[in-house]
Simulated scan of single mutants.
Amino acid sequence: MTISKAIILSAGQGSRLLPLTRDIPKCLIELGGRSLISWQVAALVANGIRDIVVVTGFRTERVEDHALQLYRDTGARIRTLFNPFFQVADNLGTCWIAREEMDRDFIILNGDTIVSDEIVARLIDGVKEPITVTVDVKADYDDDDMKVNRDAEGRLHQIGKRLLPPDTNAESIGMLAFTGDGPSIFRNQVDQMMRTPDGVERWYLRAIDVIAKGNRVGTVSIEGLEWQEVDFPQDVEAAEALTAKWVAEGRYAK
C-alpha cells in the first residue's frame, strides 16, 4: 500500500493555549527548533507523501508563508486551502471545505498532533479497510480523549469523547487513512451532515462514528510509538521534550 497525499486540518487558533497562540495559530508553535507543522510534514515526507494540503483559518497568511518555506525545504507539494468559516464551524466544516481534495487515497491529520515517521508507516502498512483509524491503547482515558470501541479484529464500532469507560478500549490520535472507496464514503457523509442544522457544530470524527454503523472501519494500533497532541500548556512541555529527543537522535535532520 502506498499513499501519496495528506490533508492537515490547521484552521483553528488553539484558544486553550492562550496567550501562546494570541497571534499565531497552533500549528506554528515552535518545538525543538521547528514548527509543529514542520514536524508533521517531515514525518509524512519520510513516508513518500509529497502532496500535502493544509487547511488554514486563523492567521492564514502566516501559515501560507510558512507552507511556502516548507515547500522550499522539502520539495514536497505543500498547498494551503483557506476555511473562511473557521470561527463559526468545528472541524467537520474544515473537512467540508477540503472535500474536493479528497479525490484519491489520502491521510487526514489534525493540525495539533505530532507523530513519528514510524506511526505514519504503521498506518499505511496496516490499512485493510476503506477507512482506517490510528489508535493508541492506554490504561485509562480522560474526558478529553477521543475514545474508541473496537472489537478483537480491530473493527471500530464507536468513536467519541462521551464513550463510557466499560466501552472504551483505545483512543484516536487524530490521524486516519482513506483508501479505495473510503474517500467517497467520507466525503458523502461529511456533505450530508453539513446539510443539517447542527452540522457546523460537529467534529469530523462524528462522521466516522456514523459510517462505522454501516461500513467497515478498521483500526491500527500504534501502542508504544511516539506522538503528542498539543492542546494544553502541559502538552507543549511534553511536545518540547519529545522533539528535543528527536533532535538529539538526528531525526528529520534539515
Rank of each mutant, 00 (worst) to 15 (best):
7 I>E: 01
8 I>F: 02
9 L>G: 06
9 L>R: 02
10 S>R: 10
12 G>K: 06
12 G>Y: 10
12 G>I: 02
13 Q>D: 06
14 G>W: 07
14 G>H: 08
15 S>D: 12
16 R>Q: 06
17 L>N: 12
18 L>Q: 15
19 P>S: 03
20 L>Y: 12
23 D>R: 08
23 D>F: 13
24 I>T: 10
26 K>E: 01
29 I>V: 13
30 E>N: 11
31 L>I: 02
32 G>S: 05
32 G>I: 07
37 I>F: 11
38 S>E: 08
40 Q>S: 04
41 V>C: 00
41 V>N: 00
42 A>F: 15
44 L>M: 12
44 L>E: 07
44 L>P: 05
47 N>P: 00
50 R>E: 11
52 I>G: 10
53 V>Y: 05
56 T>Q: 12
57 G>D: 01
58 F>N: 04
61 E>S: 12
64 E>S: 14
66 H>I: 06
67 A>R: 13
67 A>N: 07
68 L>S: 08
69 Q>I: 08
69 Q>K: 15
69 Q>E: 12
70 L>G: 09
71 Y>H: 13
72 R>G: 06
72 R>Q: 15
72 R>F: 07
72 R>S: 05
73 D>E: 11
76 A>Y: 12
77 R>M: 12
77 R>P: 04
81 L>N: 01
86 F>R: 13
86 F>C: 09
88 V>M: 00
89 A>D: 14
90 D>C: 05
93 G>E: 01
93 G>F: 02
95 C>F: 14
98 A>C: 05
99 R>Q: 09
100 E>S: 09
101 E>T: 00
102 M>H: 01
104 R>S: 12
104 R>V: 07
106 F>D: 00
108 I>F: 01
109 L>D: 02
111 G>D: 14
112 D>T: 03
115 V>Y: 06
118 E>Y: 13
118 E>W: 11
118 E>T: 11
121 A>T: 11
122 R>D: 04
126 G>Q: 12
129 E>W: 09
129 E>T: 14
130 P>E: 01
131 I>N: 06
132 T>C: 03
135 V>K: 04
138 K>Y: 13
147 K>A: 02
150 R>W: 06
151 D>M: 12
152 A>S: 03
153 E>Y: 06
159 I>D: 01
161 K>A: 06
161 K>Q: 14
161 K>H: 10
163 L>G: 03
166 P>N: 10
166 P>Q: 11
166 P>M: 12
169 N>H: 08
169 N>V: 00
171 E>V: 05
176 L>G: 00
177 A>G: 09
178 F>W: 02
179 T>C: 07
181 D>T: 14
182 G>V: 03
182 G>D: 00
183 P>V: 00
186 F>S: 01
188 N>E: 15
188 N>T: 15
189 Q>E: 15
191 D>P: 02
192 Q>V: 08
193 M>H: 03
199 G>W: 04
205 L>R: 06
205 L>W: 13
206 R>C: 10
208 I>F: 07
209 D>R: 05
211 I>H: 05
219 T>R: 03
220 V>R: 05
221 S>N: 01
221 S>L: 01
226 E>A: 14
228 Q>F: 04
229 E>F: 11
244 A>W: 08
246 W>K: 08
247 V>C: 02
247 V>G: 01
248 A>T: 09
253 A>E: 11
253 A>Y: 08
254 K>Y: 07
